Simulated assay, not measured.
Amino acid sequence: MRSWVTVGALALAATVVGPAVVHTTASAHAISAPTQVGAGKAGKVTPTPAPTPTPAPTPSTGTAPLVQGTLVETVAYGRHVRQRMDVWYQPDELKRPGVFLIHGGWWSSGDKKYMTEVSRSYAEQGYVVFNINYRLSGDASWPAPRTDTFGAIATARRHAARWSFDPNNYVVVGFSAGGHLATAVGTYKNGLPGLRGVVGISPVISPLTAYTEGIGTLDPNKRKLRDSAIKLAGGCEPTGKCARVWTSMEVPWHASRGDAPMLIVHSSDEFVSAEHSRQLKEHLQQVGVPVTVLTEQGVEHSAPLYRLPGVAEQVQQWVAEKLLSSGR
């Protein structure tokens, strides 16, 4: 099987627009019939317009990945109704790098459907995209959502050939609470096989920081984030018998030399403070893992932050550098 890197590289001009659902829904323990993105009547394929008029080809090949022929399957990676992921792929003989997307929502809400256009933007660049749902805090407490993320990744790697996916060349991108899961996966033990990078957009890296910053504040979002962290921990605060679960949730404390490089993006005045990224950067740098922190002016959080001019492009460029260098 040929490597995707040998025949093409990435177009890096996609931006994010509002969500639109294109996937099908699978029954439990099943893989749905593929949906062809941009398919018209009688099975004919019509190109889906890119978020920007013309993706720029890379200098190395002069060839931008094709949008036509992209399929979307909804896959069950576990028994729970939330243990589902949408897989965007092209059924060819290449081994393409992968991007795993994790939605936010206070660990208690949200859905992969809100990541549809982000999924589309990465699929248009030639990646295999895994847009995952996971059990929420109302379904199960920590570490259930992290366990689900591991389950989605393991399923993708196990069935890599089905989706033309290179199981040893992927990144994980998480938004807000999903950023907590992405960075938690990135710092688990001494690194996951094949994980080349982690991106957090407004990630709640330190639930303990969220807990502390939510005490006595007038900011309703900080108060809600504190309550959400308590709910994720099973309803208990970080003392006594609950200290162990809070320790497990605290991403910076699990930094190790084998962890993947990270890119973290915050707004300067959003309710998930840059203190989260400062702590993680300090711990990862102590063990020699590179961390890039970008700070944008303003209060935008999560997807609105990602939509700011230039942010998505910077993230996509960083992702491309990690996956292209690993795929050669």
Rank of each mutant, 00 (worst) to 15 (best):
L323H: 11
A154Y: 01
A274M: 14
P91A: 15
P309F: 04
K222E: 10
G179N: 09
K41H: 11
E250H: 04
K322I: 01
A56C: 00
D269C: 12
I102H: 08
V311C: 05
V21K: 12
T183Y: 01
S256V: 04
A11R: 13
G78E: 00
G38I: 11
G310A: 02
P51I: 01
E313F: 12
S202F: 11
P57C: 03
A182T: 04
Q125S: 14
V81G: 00
A210Q: 03
V45F: 12
W107N: 08
A140R: 15
L101N: 06
E282S: 13
Y114V: 10
V171I: 14
L263D: 05
I132Q: 09
E250T: 12
S176Y: 07
P34Q: 08
E93M: 10
A144S: 12
C242T: 00
S277N: 01
P193F: 02
Y77W: 08
P238E: 05
Y89A: 06
V99W: 13
A76V: 05
A182C: 06
A260G: 15
N169H: 07
A182R: 08
G98A: 06
K41T: 08
T183K: 07
A161H: 13
Q317V: 15
T155A: 14
E93K: 14
P53R: 05
Y122V: 05
V173N: 09
P238C: 00
R223Y: 13
M262R: 09
H23Y: 07
T48C: 01
E321F: 02
E313Y: 13
L208M: 10
P167H: 03
G214D: 04
A33K: 11
S32R: 11
V37A: 07
T58P: 15
G62E: 04
K189G: 00
L263K: 05
L136H: 11
Q286F: 10
F175M: 08
Q125V: 00
C242Y: 04
T247M: 13
Q286C: 02
A274S: 13
G43W: 00
K41G: 08
Q286W: 06
G194H: 07
D259H: 08
L225P: 01
E270S: 06
W88K: 07
A156W: 08
P261E: 04
G38H: 06
P65W: 02
G197I: 01
A144I: 12
D166F: 06
I31P: 01
V72Q: 12
R158A: 15
A56H: 03
P59A: 02
P34I: 00
S121Y: 05
V291P: 14
R79V: 10
K322D: 11
G214A: 03
T149S: 14
W106A: 09
S141N: 02
I215T: 11
A177C: 05
G197F: 01
E213N: 15
L218A: 07
A14D: 15
G200E: 10
V99N: 09
R82D: 02
R158T: 06
G110S: 03
S109E: 06
Y134L: 08
A274R: 08
A177W: 03
W318E: 14
L232S: 04
T70D: 07
I102R: 12
V265F: 10
V199S: 14
S141K: 15
K222C: 04
D269N: 12
H254E: 04
G105C: 05
V5I: 15
H301W: 09
